[in-house]
């Protein structure tokens, strides 16, 4: 009687609404994407998609813009991940080590999290303005005028400008996660190490680093996936320009979608899903091996 009562309490109806909604608008599309990527569905014949085998994928690999967008996305992801992790960890260490107003700094660095990426992009397009923008003006003020560039319209610097903006935007969350990881390391370990005569670097290598691997893992995955998925900020700042210098995967898919080539964009999207899922699983697996239990 009792056991029936308890399991009856947790009826499937609790999970059903969420299950159905999620299935309909997430799982189902992902599955049908598997099919859609092999059709020539477009806005010209919206109700008559036809199978065209591997044609979409062939077009993708022959398309120069696609190759450029993949390359740009890789560069963007690698650059931003490395900087965000290294600088983020550094900032977290500094904050964790006794600067005053730690919470204020944390708040300030974290604040861009609540702003819309498009809005941030517009603000930055003002900052990056070559003649009047604050960044170039500041550089000229301190005598580094030769460093002032056409940040958004010179193909050499546009990608750098985008990376800097993205790092500015997202490093707050990274720092917060690292801080939490750092704070969860028991102080006794450090004190014991000091008693043993260990120096700063040794403490870092043997205590801090191994015990914060979990936050490192999460941050890496967040940066990698966030970098690959990037869209809003690039769209608002340069929309893939100038001359495809900042065309990333997200803007490529949107461009194809806006041209009405739905099957083609679905193919690109499918590739994306597969690669990202693989990367996530592999990264998770790698870090799982490195974890240290205490």
């Amino acid at each position: 009687m009792r056991s029936k009562g308890i399991s009856g309490q947790y009826s499937v109806l609790f999970v059903l609404p969420a299950f159905c909604l999620f299935s309909l608008f997430f799982i189902l599309p992902n599955l049908s994407g598997l099919v859609m990527a092999f059709t020539n569905w477009s806005s010209y014949f919206p109700l008559h998609p036809k199978f065209n085998g591997w044609r979409n994928f062939q077009d993708l690999f022959e398309s120069p813009v696609f190759a450029i967008s993949v390359r740009n996305t890789l560069i963007f992801t690698a650059a931003t991940t490395i900087v965000k992790i290294v600088v983020g960890f550094g900032l977290a260490l500094i904050l964790n080590n006794g600067v005053k107003y730690k919470n204020t700094y944390r708040t300030i660095i974290f604040s861009p999290f609540v702003f819309n990426p498009l809005v941030i992009a517009y603000v930055f397009s003002a900052l990056y303005q070559p003649t009047f923008g604050p960044i170039n003006t500041l550089l000229r003020h301190v005598g580094l005028g030769f460093l002032a560039q056409n940040w958004l319209t010179d193909t050499k610097y546009a990608m750098t400008a985008i990376c800097v903006m993205d790092i500015w935007m997202s490093i707050g969350a990274i720092v917060v996660i690292f801080l939490t990881g750092l704070q969860s390391v028991p102080k006794e370990y450090y004190e014991a190490a000091t008693v043993d005569g260990a120096g700063g670097i040794s403490k870092f290598r043997h205590i801090t680093f191994p015990l914060t691997i979990y936050s490192l893992c999460i941050n890496t995955i967040l940066c990698l996936i966030g970098g690959a998925k990037v869209f809003g900020q690039v769209y608002g700042l340069t929309n893939g320009g100038p001359a495809d210098a900042t065309q990333v995967y997200g803007t490529f898919i949107f461009k194809s979608f806006s041209s009405g080539l739905f099957g083609y964009s679905a193919a690109a999207g499918l590739l994306f899903t597969i690669v990202i899922s693989l990367v996530s699983f592999i990264t998770l697996g790698l870090f799982r091996r490195l974890e240290v239990d205490y």
Binding site: P46, I225, G269, I276
Partner: peptide, 23 residues
């Protein structure tokens, strides 16, 4: 279902097929 929902965190959303579903 626990794993089912977990895929939602890892796998990116398939926008174009969702567009078709909405259509």
């Amino acid at each position: 279902t626990s794993l089912y929902f977990l895929t939602g965190i890892i796998v990116p959303t398939a926008i174009i097929p969702t567009y078709f579903t909405m259509l």
